[in-house]
Design a protein around this nucleic acid. Sequence first.
DNA 1: CTTCTGTATCGACGAATGTCGAAACAGCAA
DNA 2: TTGCTGTTTCGACATTCGTCGATACAGAAG
Lengths: 106, 106
Amino acid sequence: MVREPLGEEAAVGLSRMFKALSDPIRLRLLSLIASYEGGEACVCDLTGPFDVSQPTISHHLKVLREAGLVGSERRGTWVYYWVIPQALAQLSALLQIPAAPAKAGA
Amino acid sequence: MVREPLGEEAAVGLSRMFKALSDPIRLRLLSLIASYEGGEACVCDLTGPFDVSQPTISHHLKVLREAGLVGSERRGTWVYYWVIPQALAQLSALLQIPAAPAKAGA
DNA sequence: CTTCTGTATCGACGAATGTCGAAACAGCAA
DNA sequence: TTGCTGTTTCGACATTCGTCGATACAGAAG
């Protein structure tokens, strides 16, 4: 982020992940999944805490999944979601700014 | 993010910042500003690298500013923008996930 | 088979977003 | 003053997004 100006392709990919985080419900969904024991949660646990309909939650989970932030698997009747740590780590590292800001010129 | 499920208010505030990062041009703008010497850049330096019009760049800068990710100041003829490190640090910390994921239950 | 529950997809709607050209504003220089 | 350059704001437009109800799909149980 700071060391060099971030190419166009990279920016497109990263912005897709950030876009997945740009909704309050998706942010809370991600946090809810991450905070569950074992790092995964059943969809049935994720619909209760929100004021929106079940299809809407399903839609948000799909957005998170297509952004590569979570994975999912059906086990019998229920579908489980888990966080993909590498994806979050990539974004976290990108936002890490040294205290003394700059280095490279234009 | 992992330790407890992230309240509704907090999620709204954080999602606003992530939304500002959800566009490739804004991501590159931020990176471009951060990578400039002194950590700040003139708008005149920021319009060249992009294929969009200058008003569009101005609009994206406004979005970044209103999200609290950058600050700006007019100095004579030119307007300068700089990154606000605390804002990025907050997001970066939120995305920091321990290697062994979970702890808290539902 | 049928039925029931959990989850995903579909189609539609209003609201928000990214983009542009045109116009307005800010500061400097004649 | 007038003019010039850098930047922002204003309308307008097509596209995308979040949401819903209705429907379809998946698996387990009668």
